[in-house]
Each structure stands twice: as C-alpha cells, then as structure tokens.
Amino acid sequence: MGFFSKLKDLKEGLTKTRKQFVEKIENLVSFTKQIDEDFFEELEEILIQGDVGVNTSMELVEKLRAQVKARKIEDPAELKAVLKELVREILGEETESLNLTGQPLSIFVVVGVNGVGKTTTIGKLAHKLKAEGKKVILAAGDTFRAAAIDQLEIWGNRAGVDVIKHNEGADPAAVAFDAVQAARARKADCLIIDTAGRLHTKTNLMEELKKVRRVIEREIPGAPHEVLLVLDATTGQNAVQQAKIFGQAAGVTGIALTKLDGTAKGGVVISIKAELDVPVKLIGIGEGMEDLRLFDAREYAEALFE
C-alpha cells in the first residue's frame, strides 16, 4: 500500500478528530485580528477540549507564546503551522515498529482496563502479522470475564491462527506458561498473550499481571518483547493515569490506541507522549480486520492539521 493511499485512509479515520480540532483552531485564527492574551487562552481551551489535557495544553501554549515572541509573529494565520510543528516535536519523528527480534520467539503481552478493546486489537494484530508472513499463536489469558476465551477463539479463527486456552477461572500465569511452551514447540514467530481487563487501581490484579510477566521472563530471557497497553481514545485524562500505573506494574513498551474512528478527539495521544514519553505504536481506526496500523507520528500530525 502506497504512502498516499495509506495517508488517505488515516485521514478518513481521523476526519472527526480533524474536524473538531483543526476547524476550531482555524476559526479562532481567522476571527482573531491580534495575538493577545485572550487568543492564547482560547487556544488553550480548544486544546483541552481535544483531550490534550491541562498540563500539556498549557505547555504547548507556553511554547507557542515563546515562538511568537522570538519570531515576531503578528499574523494569527501563521500560528497554525507553528502549532503543528510543536505538536510534531512532542510526538517525535520516527515511525514506530513492533519488536519482533525475539529468538526463537517474540512475545507480546496485551494489557489494559476493561472494555478498551484488547481482544479485538489482538485479533487484528494477529491478522496483520500473519499477512506479513509470521507464524502467530494467541494465548487466552483473560480467564476472568465471561466468554472472553470464546471471543478470542473467534478472532483466532478469523485470522487463521492457533489459540492456546485453559478453562475460565484458570491462573493466567499458567496459561502464559503453557502458551510459551506451545509456541516454542510449534516454532511460532510471535506469541500474543491476552489478559483480563483490570482497573489500574486494583492492586491485587496488578500483582497478577506482574506474575504473568515473571513467568514469561523466566521461560524466555528478554521476553516479553512488547507489552502493549490498549487505550480507548474516548478516554479522558484518566488515560495518563492508566499509562503511568500499567507502566510501573507491567513495563509497558507501547500503546495501542483504539476506537480512534469514532472519537472526536485524538489529543490524548499528545498528552501521553508529552507527560510519560510512552510511544503510541498502534492505532485502531475502524471495525474491520485491516483497521489496525502502525502509528506514524509524522503522518499523524500531518493528518491532524491538513
């Protein structure tokens, strides 16, 4: 898929985001005659409204203020480009990739609070990796929620990959252990482990997650190669808290941002990157099997402002 068609898709997925976010900025810019305090305050509010968060919004506006002063900008119309630059600076320039360098096996663990779309993301990710020629195995580590195992199995069938499972109520660490053995025996390239949704405030459940991690570490040195935190793009400022606490407990290496197709805001991405420096690696921009892609910061900033 060429870059432009890819960009087009992403843009379509982000239409809502862009409409809300950029239109407001454009309106502000075109109705403002003079760059003054009121202007900056209003801009800050637009950013907050996009779920960028108070801290990050203030920081962005502060930087913008400095730029205006340094470059002696007087025309508000010029500010859009400067703001885009600043956002891109926060998001970084690199294209993210998934760490598939594990030998003989790369292990991904997928974590997150309830209802963010962990299982669906795993289904899509399995499909994606398989299409790239990898042998993928899934592990049904959500042994808590009713029918979560069935849900993963259906996704496994759709993607055409094996699913390792125990019964409901089983120890997730034991599922992980068995899955590692199975993945080794079947010479898989990548094992993706699902986990039950848990609120980051439940200490005992976070301990359970640590145990899963310990089991994997012991079986394959250097694993897990990715711990992906799935975040729902409709989530507000609590997303930052989630990223922080899951980061401490599970050693999150990247974020998969889901449901970006429906939310009016994409700002939480900027907030998380700015406050925690955890990279967004994957984004879900639709309900289809193909609608999961690698996050490209540059492309994202481009799509956001175009």
Binding site: T234, T235, T263
Partner: peptide
C-alpha cells in the same frame, strides 16, 4: 457510560 470517558461524553 464509562466513567473514564473524556470530552466526547457530551457528544455521545
């Protein structure tokens, strides 16, 4: 509604 919902809650 999820208690963690952000600004989009109103639109929803």
């Amino acid at each position: 509604v999820d208690a963690m919902t952000g600004q989009v809650a109103v639109e929803v």
